[in-house]
């Protein structure tokens, strides 16, 4: 079976890391540059408010802090899911994956609320360079969280129906890597956008 071991996902190759996990690490490396570009754009333009509202006029820092806390807690539940998957405990895996997805959905819901509130306060997408770069950066992050939620629910369905061949914990761990990455990016974005005054 040596060839099989070399050719497919869950087994460990020359690096000692499985193909799917190594692939995810590489993809996340690439994502760093994506967010790097978006964050640079925001940092360049955050002071250029034109006629529109300034960041400090629209930001509701306590609200965003709470939703950030919710997102960070989802990383904790993700760890619990990975740990349950490693113990082949399908019931706990499904439970924690679902909780993680719901916490993520809460965060996205908070973002939708926040965008709506900002819009009502006069910060449209094309109001100013600050507005455009803010919406693009946080919007891209929101899309990443949403994709993560879809992946988590898909994973729940697959675990429940026993549709993941090979090592289940490996797949759960790989999605976990993505989820933690998205959380870490949010810490950077939250600090740069909300906490550092312009």
């Amino acid at each position: 079976m040596a060839e099989l071991v070399q050719e497919h996902g869950a087994q460990h190759g020359s690096t000692g890391i499985s193909n799917i996990k190594l692939g995810m690490w590489l993809f996340l490396g690439s994502e760093c540059l994506l967010f790097g570009g978006l964050i640079s754009t925001y940092m360049l333009y955050r002071g250029r408010v034109g006629e529109g509202p300034t960041p400090m006029q629209v930001f509701d820092i306590p609200f965003t802090s709470v939703s950030s806390f919710v997102l960070l807690m989802s990383s904790l539940t993700m760890v619990l899911a990975v740990s349950a998957a490693a113990k082949a405990d399908d019931r706990s895996t499904v439970l924690w994956l679902t909780v993680t997805a719901l916490l993520g959905a809460t965060f996205v819901g908070g973002q939708v609320y926040e965008f709506t509130a900002f819009y009502n306060e006069g910060l449209g997408f094309s109001t100013s360079l600050f507005a455009s770069s803010f919406y693009v950066l946080t919007g891209f992050h929101g899309v990443h969280v949403t994709v993560g939620i879809i992946m988590l629910f898909a994973l729940v369905a697959m675990v429940r129906r026993n549709r993941i061949p090979g090592s289940k914990s490996e797949t759960v761990e790989m999605i976990g890597l993505y989820w933690h990455f998205v959380d870490i990016v949010w810490i950077v974005i939250f600090t740069l956008i909300y906490l550092i005054p312009v």
Partner: peptide
């Protein structure tokens, strides 16, 4: 990014 891993022969691939 998920490339489905295939199971070793001892574990039958279910789906």
């Amino acid at each position: 990014i998920i490339e489905r891993p295939s199971a070793p022969a001892t574990v039958p691939a279910i789906p």
